[in-house]
């Protein structure tokens, strides 16, 4: 059935999505690049200078990196542990998996609000601490004066919300490893930890790579969670982009922020692609 029409068929099927993505992804991408590098239609670096010299810039960069560099490793370790626990579960695996992946369906804004309810002055955390006698009354953790507590509040909320993403990827990867490898290792004398380090982790590299890239890129885009919990007390990169766009009506600087995030994301992706690469001959 290799008529001309059937040879064209795959391209015809792809065409609508390609056109769509070209219009709504490639074009805006190029526009963002040009927008960031121009002022009033003329090529210039004004937007970038404006961005860098802004008061909040350094803070936003520091906060975002701090958040990403703490949240991602925690989530990888947690998700790995959860995935291994899930594998050992004899019954009820589906129920537990469903519960653990509920946060996947929760908007980052909603997740922020959830933890606001807990961390807020008169919230549940303080009620518990009060009950344990550790504090005297409603205490504020999420203010400008308590940056460390605010950071940890945002950290917890992000870990709560987004670990499920990593869990699902890692668990899928774990399921793909034939159990014979672990059994063979066991028969030939490997203890559980040795099997995990020498057999499971290396075979999990592709999934780890995917999870790291996806989660890190998403982590650099953190926005609504921070806004819901800390308002404007904890500047982050996307929050600043939003600010410049909506409140200062300056799309140019917002675009500059966008390009910065793009550059960081691409950099992180390249690093992970290189660091966790598997030689083709090592593929199962």
């Amino acid at each position: 059935m290799t008529t001309v029409r059937s040879r064209l068929l795959p391209y015809l099927l792809l065409a609508p999505s390609v056109a769509f993505l070209a219009a709504l992804f490639l074009v805006p991408l190029i526009q963002t690049i040009t927008l960031s590098f121009s002022e009033d239609g003329v090529p210039s670096l004004a937007n970038y200078t404006r961005m860098v010299s802004d008061l909040n810039f350094g803070l936003a960069v520091r906060n975002t990196f701090l958040l990403v560099l703490t949240v991602v490793p925690i989530q990888i370790v947690m998700a790995l542990a959860m995935a291994m626990m899930l594998q050992k579960l004899p019954r009820g695996r589906d129920v537990v998996l469903w519960i653990w992946t509920i946060p996947l369906g929760i908007s980052d804004l909603a997740a922020g609000l959830v933890w606001l309810a807990i961390l807020q002055d008169r919230g549940y955390l303080n009620s518990a601490l009060y009950g344990l006698g550790l504090i005297d009354g409603p205490t504020a953790w999420l203010t400008y004066e308590t940056p460390v507590a605010l950071f940890f509040g945002v950290l917890v909320a992000e870990v709560w919300r987004a670990t499920a993403i990593v869990l699902v990827i890692l668990f899928a990867g774990l399921q793909l490893i034939p159990k014979e490898y672990k059994e063979a290792a066991e028969v030939f004398g490997a203890r559980p930890w040795t099997t995990f380090v020498r057999i499971t982790l290396p075979l999990l590299k592709p999934s780890l790579q995917t999870a790291l890239i996806l989660r890190t890129v998403l982590a650099f885009e953190v926005f609504a969670v921070v806004y819901a919990i800390g308002g404007t007390n904890f500047p982050v990169l996307v929050g600043e982009a939003y600010n410049w766009q909506r409140n200062y009506q300056n799309t140019g600087v917002a675009a500059a922020y966008a390009m910065l995030i793009v550059a960081i994301s691409l950099g992180a992706t390249v690093v992970f692609l290189w660091a966790l690469r598997t030689k083709p001959e090592q593929q199962a």
Partner: peptide, 28 residues
């Protein structure tokens, strides 16, 4: 299992794909 000191050949070989043949044979 790991303390029984046995050796086994599996139906699907279970030869570790991320190790060389030498490392595989040396595993036990």
């Amino acid at each position: 299992t790991r303390a029984r000191g046995l050796a086994m050949v599996f139906q699907n070989y279970a030869v570790f794909p991320h190790m060389t043949v030498y490392e595989n044979v040396a595993f036990g």
